[in-house]
Design a protein around this nucleic acid. Structure first.
Length: 473
DNA sequence: ATCGGCTCGCGCAA
DNA sequence: TGCGCGAAGCCGAT
């Protein structure tokens, strides 16, 4: 019994039943032999929503089988890597809305503050928790917290990938080389995994000692460093705002997405990435709704689904399997060799971090992109590539460029500190998931981009003017 | 406007 | 072992 204790049990949806429809024997054992007498716990971290959430669904399934209450626990971690006011404000407001919705389903949300494995272990001991279900996150500190929690919590701890359509560990067990190598692996499993979510059901088992609602005011007073970027005004967090944003995208912008997505005019992008990052919107929900949409051509839908599923899951795959995902050294060998060979090349312009951060380069287009990031917390996908490639070209070393791009993205982007961000910076600077091209100074064979390309694709002057207007507004 | 070449390595066919 | 082809491009030729 409970032979898995002390280790994280990785669950994917096929673990529930095998192909013949029989329950997984080890899981069936766990189901019936939970030791604690307290509630089951969903340790919410990456997927901060009360529905469309496979980790929550699995936790509720276990709690129902064991006829016990289910609580959700979120642990705020002081000093969480590169998190600042902009992120906390968006996250906490969304989380309080999620908490309210969960309470309506008889699943109270408990807010802890501290180092997550310490807090979870203490909380589970105090409440005699029967089991813990955590959502999957490929980032190394999250994986380490999960491993440590599994060793310290007496109850079994399960990991469920609630973020990817095809669970990351199931799609591939190694670092994939490119989109084309992971694409067939994901496509093959999509019919099995791209299925409707269960309807949320009020939980029938209540705790006699149910926790009271979290003190969100105290949480918001969380210590903050000076000079951090502030909240992004006019951008509503929360699972209901996210659902509305998805509906709005499908109604008004899915049509023509395939041809417009490289145009950074405001209406081309989906604008959903902050919701995805904080798990306020499930990529699988977006995929299901887009596929069922009456708007948009087959080509529009395919383009959106490619970005939503293949490229998003490729970035999780990169972070899970590449320990140096947030360092230059995590790039592909051929790209790093190119950068090293061109380390001595003359840079046409040389800027340090402060010039980039202040949007004070010679290039009005680059500065506009940086301002868009600083002001709105978002940058259009095409401009992110151009923006990062110019940081490489105008920094004294690839090392400095990598740090500048990652720091600015993490500091200002609402979806910073995300596998997508790490992967995007690597794609631009080290050639990750890309192929070699005609050699150039500084870049070597890593793909080069320039302002002429932008002019070919969109109205650069209008883009610059739009960012100026946003700044003075 | 459109096209081919650039250039490396993965994965499959043979 | 050979071969097709690829995360978003650039450039020059036509």
């Amino acid at each position: 019994m409970l032979t898995q204790q002390g280790r994280v049990r990785r669950i994917d949806r096929t673990d529930r039943t095998d192909r013949a429809g029989r329950a997984d024997p080890a899981l069936a054992t766990d189901r019936e032999h939970a030791t604690g007498r307290g509630p089951g716990i969903y340790w919410m971290s990456r997927d901060q929503r009360p529905f469309d959430n496979w980790a929550l669904a699995f936790a509720q399934e276990l709690a129902l089988a064991q006829k016990r209450p289910l609580w959700t626990v979120f642990c705020l971690a002081p000093g969480y890597p590169r998190a600042n006011r902009r992120h906390y404000e968006f996250m906490l407001r969304g989380l309080s809305l999620t908490g309210r919705l969960l309470a309506g389903q008889n699943i109270p949300l408990v807010l802890l503050t501290g180092r997550p494995p310490d807090e979870l272990a203490a909380f589970c001991a105090a409440k005699d928790a029967a089991f813990v279900v955590a959502d999957f996150d490929p980032l190394r500190h999250k994986q380490a917290w999960l491993d440590e929690a599994a060793r310290r919590i007496g109850a079994p701890l399960y990991e469920v990938d609630a973020h990817n359509v095809v669970p990351c560990r199931l799609a591939s067990d190694k670092q994939e080389f490119a989109a084309r190598t992971i694409r067939p692996k994901i496509q093959r499993l999509l019919p099995e995994y791209l299925t409707p979510f269960p309807e949320p059901e009020p939980h029938p088992f209540l705790s006699p000692d149910a926790p009271s609602a979290p003190d969100w005011r105290a949480a918001a007073a969380y210590p903050q460093a000076a000079n951090e970027p502030g909240p992004v005004p006019g951008f509503e967090p929360g699972p209901l705002a996210a659902a509305k944003a998805l509906e709005d995208f499908i109604a008004h912008r899915l049509d023509g997405y395939a041809s417009r997505r490289n145009d950074p005019a405001p209406d081309g992008q989906s604008g959903l990435s902050p919701y995805f990052h904080f798990g306020q919107l499930a990529p699988q929900r977006a995929a299901l709704d887009v596929m069922a949409a009456k708007t948009g051509s087959a080509e529009d839908k395919a383009a959106f689904l490619e970005e939503l599923i293949i490229r998003r899951e490729l970035s999780d795959n990169f972070c899970l399997h590449q320990p140096d995902y947030d360092a230059l050294s995590g790039g592909p060998a051929w790209g790093l060799a190119e950068l090293a060979a061109h380390a001595g090349d003359k840079r046409p312009f040389l800027y340090d971090f402060e010039v980039f951060e202040g949007a004070n380069t010679h290039s009005a287009l680059w500065n506009a992109a940086q301002r868009q990031l600083a002001v709105t917390g978002k940058m259009h996908g095409y401009m992110r590539m151009y923006w990062a490639k110019k940081i490489l070209e105008w920094s004294e070393s690839p090392q400095a460029a990598f740090e500048t791009a990652l720091t600015l993205n993490d500091r200002y982007s609402l979806d910073g500190r995300d596998p997508n961000g790490f992967t995007g910076v690597h794609w631009s600077i080290t050639g990750l998931h890309d192929r070699p091209w005609t050699p150039r100074p500084v870049y070597g064979k890593i793909r080069y981009m320039n302002e002429r390309g932008c002019r070919r694709k969109f109205d650069v002057a209008a883009y610059i003017a739009a960012q100026d207007a946003a700044r003075t507004r």
